[in-house]
Nucleic acid binder design. Structure first.
Lengths: 137, 137
DNA sequence: CTTGACCTGTGTCTAAGACACAGGTCTAAG
DNA sequence: CTTAGACCTGTGTCTTAGACACAGGTCAAG
């Protein structure tokens, strides 16, 4: 199986497959012409990787998980502990985005009824530079 | 004013100041010993940059805005149009994070009552690989 | 045999700084 | 004056997860 073939069969891109290959997550044999040749085992591994990415695991996480399972150990405890970490991070980022979204949309509406001003020596754009001050208005 | 001095006075890091300097957003003079020497104008520019970053503008956006205002033009129209774009992006990412957060926390709770399993030839971790299937349960 | 379409691996690029590092500066003690 | 140590400097490299560019290889149709 060639790289594009594998990628398409699982709904991803050749670049993604190549990336995982570079990291050693997939281990294709080298075919005669130097092209990479992927096995059925690579197919299941890639399937796993894509599922895990979809659940918010980082590629580094996945590498760790695959290593664990290659030693014959159950990766389940590691998986549970990693997702706890990732979920906490996601929660933090989520709250940050929530706040940012609020700020941005309040700025947008505030700015709609404000006039344009030319820059001055110590003011680039009064919309931005006065935003925090009049936010409560 | 030296780099750390400027950074601390506005509550940011020397690395950040150096980064903006590399991009040409700040234009320090070179002092005798080769150190960068920042002026009051750099102080106001940095203040502006930090406010804009805080509102979700990218550094590239800010570069554009500064260029506009350096030509003496009002940057307000550009600022309004850019924040509209950024807000849309933020909204998309926000929805994506919302969905991801839901998926992750549902996985976490589902996995708490599932047993560990050793890997098999075509299964790295059954928690991950069966998640989508039994999600509704 | 040649054309063109598609594919390949390798190398570089992204955002926004953080970090490493070898060396410079500055203040206080001796 | 000298030396020690603390802190500072600029430059260069690293990060994520791939996307993209590119020179060259492969393959089927003609």
């Amino acid at each position: 199986m060639k790289v594009t073939e594998l990628a398409k069969s699982l709904g991803t891109t050749a670049d993604t497959v190549r990336y995982y290959t570079r990291l050693g997550l997939l281990k294709p044999a080298k075919s005669v012409n130097g092209y990479k040749s992927y096995s059925n085992k690579d197919v299941s591994r890639l399937k796993f990787i894509l599922s895990a990415r979809n659940l918010g695991f980082s590629v580094a996480d996945i590498k760790q998980i695959l290593n664990e399972s290659e030693d014959g150990k159950s990766a389940c405890p590691l998986v549970r502990s990693l997702i706890k970490e990732r979920l906490e991070e996601t929660e933090k980022q989520f709250q940050a985005m929530l706040a940012l979204r609020g700020k941005m949309s309040s700025a947008l509406s505030q700015w709609e009824e404000m006039e344009d001003k030319a820059p001055t020596a110590n003011m680039v754009c009064h919309l931005i530079e006065n935003f925090e001050k009049i936010k409560k208005a």
